[in-house]
Design a protein around this nucleic acid. Structure first.
Lengths: 169, 169
DNA sequence: TATTGTTATACTCTATAACTATA
DNA sequence: TATAGTTATAGAGTATAACAATA
């Protein structure tokens, strides 16, 4: 960082602001999420949709309840999300023969195809976001982020944007 | 990461998932934002409140319109946010003598005091979040993040969480 | 007529709770 | 009685639009 503070005559909007890595992580993270949302919107999907498709692809046949638990959301929300994906023909609900209360979730062929398109979008997205860094720096960054993620016990592949919001007094 | 993939019998929720730096940035960023929100909630504030307090502290006397423009939100939202902060006695609205349509925004003494407490919270927050990294690694991370932020033209100190949401077809 | 701030309204998102069908 | 999924309802958050005061 070149100048640690610029009291009054600052060029920007004038936040005296936080300069730490924690703020940068939150700021860039939100920016990255917004960019990604724009990209997948071109495929008619929300980031939540993408997360669900990936979860189902990773473990076909799992129940909605299991999904809700893993994502940390309430079951009724999963219903709405899956409804949407089923309407688009990307996901199929199949009554379990073992326990007829369960719905086994599977990707349709079109769902799988969509997921590969998402992967291409994600690759382009990554390249755009990290344009400032050369390959060595990208590897370095990834390594540091993985250290943080592990220590903070973040579940690999699960974006915390699903979590149910805490009570506010 | 020890094992790059674990097809079916995985221990986690089983997302085949994204392993790139872009996803890690979004994931950790959201986590960081959530942790910070918890901390400032103890002071009776939301992250948006904190951002506003910082902006006002950085340029006392600015108008609500200016704030709305810089944050990228609609003026009516600034009204609600400032209402809240004024009720808590942290911010004062003063009719401008030059242009009586304007409200000049200032921090109250208590507002300034609250902001110093926020700074202490932020420092603790940063330390908790980056517990996995030693000082050299933290500096390295900060440097990489600043490169990204500059290239992506992110306004220093302004969290994108304010932006108005895009239309959804 | 244009602009600042405000109020009123509508819309979206998401959690809570009641309900059904299976077990 | 307990559980998976669904539906109905309500609450929070936020944008849009109409409005009052000032320029």
């Amino acid at each position: 960082m070149s100048s640690p503070r610029q009291p009054d005559q600052s060029p920007g909007p004038g936040a005296p602001g936080p300069r730490g890595a924690a703020f940068l992580l939150a700021q860039i993270g939100a920016h990255a999420a917004a960019l990604f949302a724009e990209r997948v919107a071109e495929l008619g999907l929300t980031p939540a949709d993408v997360g669900l498709l990936r979860m189902i692809a990773g473990r076909p046949g799992r129940s909605q309840r299991a999904l809700a638990t893993d994502l940390g959301v309430v079951p009724s929300r999963v219903v709405a999300l899956i409804d949407n994906l089923e309407t688009k023909g990307l996901v199929e609900r199949r009554r379990s023969t073992e326990d007829r209360r369960n719905h086994e979730l599977h990707l349709s062929p079109e769902g799988r195809h969509t997921l590969t398109r998402v992967s291409r979008s994600a690759a382009t997205h990554e390249d755009t976001l990290l344009a400032a860094l050369d390959p060595a720096q990208r590897a370095q960054l990834t390594q540091l982020l993985e250290l943080i993620a592990a220590q903070q016990e973040l579940t690999p592949g699960v974006h915390p944007g699903y979590r149910q919001s805490p009570k506010r007094s």
